[in-house]
Computed example of a mutant assay.
Amino acid sequence: MVEGLGLKGPRGWAFREVSFRAGAGALVALEGPSGSGRTCLLLALTGRMRTHEGHAEVGGLPLPRRMAAARRIAALGQVPGVSELDPSLTVAEHLRERALLQRRFDGSVRALLRRPGTRAAETRARIDEALAAAGLDPAALPKGERTSVRDLERLEALRLSIALALIGRPRLLGVDDTDLKLSDADRAAAWALLRTVADSGTTVLAVCSEAPADALRITTVASDADTAGETGENGESGEPAPDEKTADITDTARAATAGPGAKTIAEDDITEEGADDALAETGRA
């Protein structure tokens, strides 16, 4: 549930008066042009950015009051500047790194006391489960799991980022730039993948330039800073922010990986805990 949610920066509102309801396992498309606040909205709903008006509830957790708890149930796929793939690493290295981080942050004491062989088998099983859910077959890649990210096709990289997020078995998955630079066939395959993830019970938030007909469409529109947000017939919202806010949105997303004390679009938008969690998303903690 999202009611009247808004986030303001020094140049105006990144988004405002966003209201909609989506149940578990819903596919929600955050649609709009680049610079219209889509990424900020995605980060706010996954507990990575602090909003300034309105409220939301994610998995029964009120935002922005329970941001840290929301981050524990919400995972990010690709989000430029926040949870990006490292082009110099291989598929296997990304998977191994994410699995180790998952064990570090979520593993119980009992799990840590298990035999190394048992832990390794459980880790491999979780990785294989995530790869299958993301529709990524390492054997079909040019060099198998030793394929570098820089050698992946756009759709393959998207599948890998989603697989990494699914290793944590989240209840909410956020993906940025879902349809960016994809052919029509690859775009259809990407949405089919996200529908499958949603059908499994994980709610999906997907930023895109054009939403599919079967998704819950939330439209963001860039406008002048002093223009009030307008809510559409289906709870879709306009965004009273200047065209120049594109740089603000990008810089804010990047600030999430800058560590504690990072400067953001507005003071305290991203908490120190949020910055640390964003570092953990990328495996650079």
Rank of each mutant, 00 (worst) to 15 (best):
R195E: 14
V58M: 12
L152T: 05
E239I: 12
T90K: 10
A125W: 01
V82D: 03
T123L: 02
P212W: 07
F15D: 07
C208H: 02
E129S: 12
G47D: 02
A165L: 02
R254W: 13
A225C: 04
R72Q: 12
A120K: 14
E272H: 08
T250N: 07
T252L: 14
R72W: 00
A133C: 03
I167N: 01
D106I: 04
T257Y: 00
E145I: 09
L85D: 01
L182W: 09
G59L: 12
R48V: 07
L76H: 04
T118F: 00
A185W: 07
S209T: 14
G201N: 09
Q78G: 09
G259P: 11
P64Q: 07
A68R: 13
S209C: 13
D137Y: 10
V2S: 01
A185V: 15
A222Y: 06
D128R: 14
I167L: 12
A139S: 10
A262G: 14
M49H: 06
A188M: 11
A278E: 01
P87T: 10
R159F: 07
Q78E: 13
V2A: 05
R124S: 13
V149E: 02
G201L: 06
S209W: 11
R98K: 15
D184T: 15
S161E: 05
R150C: 05
A68F: 01
D86G: 00
D269L: 14
K263V: 15
D276E: 14
D199N: 12
A24E: 14
G168V: 08
G59E: 10
G6D: 04
D226V: 09
G235R: 03
E230C: 06
L173T: 05
A241M: 13
H52T: 14
P242V: 13
H52D: 15
T246N: 08
M67E: 11
P64C: 09
E122W: 08
G274H: 00
A163F: 00
A225E: 12
D176M: 11
N234A: 15
L172N: 01
R284E: 12
R119I: 12
A213N: 06
D179P: 05
L85K: 04
A99W: 00
G9W: 08
A69P: 00
L85P: 01
G4S: 12
P62Q: 07
R48C: 08
E53F: 05
L27M: 08
G35L: 06
H52S: 13
L152S: 05
D276Y: 11
G6W: 05
G37D: 04
E153L: 12
L41V: 03
R159I: 10
G135Y: 10
E84H: 02
E53K: 08
W13I: 03
L166N: 03
G261R: 04
K263D: 15
R195M: 11
A133V: 02
P33M: 06
T282I: 05
G283L: 03
G107P: 00
G261S: 07
L131A: 06
A262C: 09
I162V: 15
E17Y: 04
E31V: 11
E273N: 13
G6V: 04
R171Q: 13
T196F: 00
K245I: 15
G25S: 00
R72G: 00
R65N: 06
E31D: 11
K143M: 11
P64A: 07
M1C: 08
